[in-house]
């Protein structure tokens, strides 16, 4: 069953073979967990969000149009699930203990508490800037920088022409550059 395409596995799941879904989970757990982690910023919470996202994907599977590619649909459902979870939780700031933990964990200059905290702040800023982008620009950037995918790989995953991916990456990055200007040297 491992050799089957995503879309073929979906058909099997809809026929009642849940082991086919287990293969899809194995295949994409890294992408979905990374997405959850990138959106929420908390490792343990990302685990819960990823789990809920997969459950949602499973529940919504009958809505998937089998004539289309599975990954973009799955990624979108996961993204929306994570965003919904985050919207429902109270806004949080970085807990003070986390700063103390950072101070205790690294004593080098580069890893000084101030530097590490600035790094956290920068991460938040990048996350915020990414979130402010329209989805069509955000997804290619996430896949490129989180997954290290090439233009071709992103195009295949999102079922779009490579030239479209190029344009969206360029525009998205231009938007990010503007949004993060104050953090650049």
């Amino acid at each position: 069953m491992q050799h089957l395409s995503d879309e073929q596995l979906v058909v099997l799941v809809l026929q009642g073979q849940s082991e086919a879904f287990a293969i899809l989970v194995e295949r994409y757990q890294k992408q979905i967990f990374a997405l959850a982690y990138r959106l929420g910023g908390d490792y343990d919470e990302a685990r819960d969000m990823a789990q809920e996202a997969f459950v949602r994907i499973y529940q919504e599977l009958s809505r998937f149009d089998s004539s289309r590619r599975f990954f973009p649909w799955m990624y979108r459902v996961a993204h929306n699930t994570c965003v919904n979870i985050l919207h429902k939780r109270p806004k949080e700031t970085t807990p003070l203990e986390a700063v103390y933990d950072l101070a205790a964990s690294d004593t080098s200059d580069e890893g000084s508490p101030v530097a590490r905290y600035e790094q956290l702040e920068l991460g938040d800023a990048i996350n915020g800037a990414l979130q402010s982008l329209p989805e069509k620009y955000r997804f290619p950037l996430i896949l490129k920088y989180l997954e290290g995918m090439s233009y071709q790989e992103i195009a295949e995953q999102l079922d779009l022409p490579v030239s479209t991916i190029e344009t969206r990456l360029f525009r998205g990055r231009a938007m990010l550059k503007k949004a993060l200007k104050e953090y650049q040297k």
Partner: peptide
């Protein structure tokens, strides 16, 4: 900035 601040994650 993006490469260093968006580190790989361990599932």
């Amino acid at each position: 900035m993006l490469k260093t601040t968006l580190p790989d994650v361990v599932v």
